[in-house]
C-alpha cells in the first residue's frame, strides 16, 4: 500500500518518553488536521502502547521502544510499536479487560480495551522472550471546509 508519509523513531524504554511518543504522534498528525477527538483518541492509544512496552515488555528494565507511523491513502493512520522485551505468553488473556500482569503498579488492565475502542484495527504479535509488536490502524474523518 502506498505510504503518503512516514516517521520512525527509537527511544529508551523509560517512562518520561511516554510524553515524547504522544508529542511525536501529535506532530506527525498536524498536516492531516485531525479533529480534537481523533487527536485525543490517538494520543491515548500511543500512550497505552508505549506504557505497555515499558511496564510489561521490559518490566521497567532497560531496552528500547520503536515507533513507526505512516499515513496511508484515504487518511488511514498506521501505528506500529515494537519492543524486544519479555513478550506475552497468552495474548487473549492479556487482552481481557481488567487483567494486568502488574497489579502492584496499579495498572488498571485497560490498555488493550482502550486501544481496541479507539482504533479500527489492532493486531498483537508476540514471541515470549523476544518481544511484542502492536500494529494499529485508524481512519481519520474527512476534512470539512467549514470551521467547527
Amino acid at each position: 500500500m502506498k505510504t503518503m508519509n512516514e516517521f520512525k523513531c527509537v527511544f529508551p524504554a523509560v517512562s518520561a518518553n511516554e510524553a515524547l511518543a504522544r508529542a511525536a504522534l501529535s506532530a506527525f498528525l498536524i498536516p492531516a488536521d485531525p479533529t480534537a477527538q481523533e487527536l485525543a483518541d490517538l494520543r491515548t492509544v500511543i500512550s497505552e502502547a508505549v506504557t505497555n512496552a515499558i511496564v510489561h515488555g521490559y518490566r521497567n528494565a532497560s531496552g528500547s521502544v520503536s515507533i513507526c507511523l505512516r499515513m496511508l491513502p484515504d487518511r488511514v493512520l498506521y501505528i506500529r510499536i515494537t519492543d524486544k522485551g519479555c513478550g506475552i505468553p497468552d495474548i487473549p488473556k492479556a487482552m481481557e479487560p481488567l487483567y494486568t500482569s502488574a497489579p502492584e503498579e496499579e495498572r488498571a488492565g485497560l490498555g488493550f480495551a482502550i486501544m481496541q475502542e479507539f482504533t479500527d484495527y489492532l493486531q498483537v504479535r508476540s514471541t515470549p522472550g523476544h518481544g511484542t509488536t502492536l500494529t494499529m490502524r485508524r481512519q481519520l474523518g474527512q476534512i470539512h471546509a467549514e470551521a467547527d
Binding site: R22, A40, R43, T44, S47, E48, T51, E105, E106, R107, A108, L110, G111, I114
Partner: peptide, 13 residues
C-alpha cells in the same frame, strides 16, 4: 489536559 488508563489505575487504587 491528558489522561490514559494510568489515571484509571490511580482512581481504582
Amino acid at each position: 489536559t491528558f489522561m490514559d488508563s494510568s489515571g484509571i489505575g490511580l482512581i481504582m487504587g
